[in-house]
């Protein structure tokens, strides 16, 4: 039996279409993780249907929980705490994880650590290297696009975010136009590598003096270009379309991020979220960071870029150390956000 020199946290994640449970040691080592993905179910509908997602979570949650105990041979007495994503996300989906974690905390009298899903995405990078402060995180996923400043551990402040579509959402929407199944990010990324930026789509808000993003103009320009070509009977290169779209996204994200790095001296730029797997974005930010003195790029391992419980365990460990606790009244908070930078 573990002598509790180590802090082992049992973590739950169910905010969207992945049911995931993990056992994490000291916020840095994944002892076991079991994830059930529903992508194939939602592909029927071209996107995540909340009620369907909630139903799948309740089918999967105990199986995932059982897996991590079976894989490690650990028991409840080995645990220091339990942690859970309580927002942001789909309310019905979040409620499955929140209800389950409260039942475990009550049954075994364990401290309960509430975790913001976005802090989880940032801490996925912890599985590459320790996070050093102050740090900046660029969070890009299907639901979120934001720049988060972290002056110290357990302190997250938004400095900019998307005004309309999330970055990953834009990928899915133009994917539909190109006949690519949801989630479209990976396939568009591959396609982009075979093409060139020939369409020169708009770079929204690129020169504006803030850290906010916008992708709806780009999305409209893309859709109009394709529809116009359809009407006059021309065939456009999907590879060039994808490359042009991706280049515009990468330019906007990189421009704003670099501006933030110049105004907020940090030790690390953390690239996090599902879209962090995009190779065009990774390459570009690597190049940009190499040119800024003292800033290292820290990327989450590819396997922890999507939604998973390991990242919740890593962020939960930090929250646990800092005394973040929730009681039995913990509720799902679908619109949960970090505070904005206080100036």
């Amino acid at each position: 039996m573990n002598e509790k020199k180590d802090t082992i946290i049992l973590a739950f994640e169910s905010s969207c279409d992945e049911t995931s449970v993990a056992l994490v040691r000291n916020g840095a080592q994944v002892l076991a993780q079991s994830t059930a993905t529903q992508i194939q179910s939602h592909q029927r509908f071209g996107g995540v249907v909340p009620e369907v997602a909630s139903r799948h979570h309740i089918e999967q949650i105990i199986g995932c929980l059982d897996d991590v105990f079976q894989q490690t041979g650990l028991g409840y007495t080995d645990l220091a705490a339990v942690a859970v994503t309580y927002g942001p996300g789909l309310v019905g989906a979040l409620l499955v994880g929140v209800s389950a974690v409260k039942a475990v905390a009550f049954a075994h009298n364990l401290p309960l650590v509430p975790v913001n899903h976005m802090a989880g995405h940032i801490y996925a990078a912890r599985y590459t290297a320790p996070i050093e402060f102050p740090a900046m995180a660029l969070l890009v996923s299907g639901g979120h696009t934001e720049l988060v400043y972290m002056p110290q551990e357990n302190d997250y402040q938004i400095i900019g975010e998307t005004r309309d579509d999330a970055c990953g959402e834009a990928f899915d929407k133009i994917g539909r136009v190109l006949g690519i199944n949801y989630p479209a990010g990976k396939e568009i990324d591959e396609l982009a590598h075979q093409g060139k930026d020939t369409f020169n789509f708009p770079r929204a808000m690129e020169k504006e003096d803030n850290y906010d993003f916008s992708f709806s103009g780009l999305k409209s320009a893309f859709i109009n270009t394709v529809h116009h070509a359809d009407q006059i009977g021309t065939k456009l290169s999907h590879a060039d379309l994808a490359a042009s779209f991706e280049q515009s996204v990468v330019d906007v994200l990189a421009e704003k991020t670099v501006r933030a790095l110049h105004n907020f001296p940090v030790k690390q730029l953390i690239l996090a979220g599902g879209v962090a797997a995009n190779s065009g974005l990774r390459t570009r930010l690597e190049k940009e960071c190499a040119q800024i003195q003292g800033v290292d790029l820290l990327e989450a391992p590819l396997k922890y870029c999507g939604d998973n419980a390991a990242m919740i365990g890593a962020a939960g460990y930090v929250g646990f150390k800092h005394g973040n606790r929730a009681g039995m009244t913990l509720n799902a908070e679908p619109g949960l956000e970090f505070p904005w930078l206080s100036v």
Partner: peptide
């Protein structure tokens, strides 16, 4: 209610499993 059922059933399942 779908949501009500899921709160009750998830809680019951998890209590039964973990105890």
């Amino acid at each position: 209610s779908y949501t009500g059922l899921r709160i009750g059933v998830t809680t019951a399942k998890t209590l039964a499993y973990s105890l």
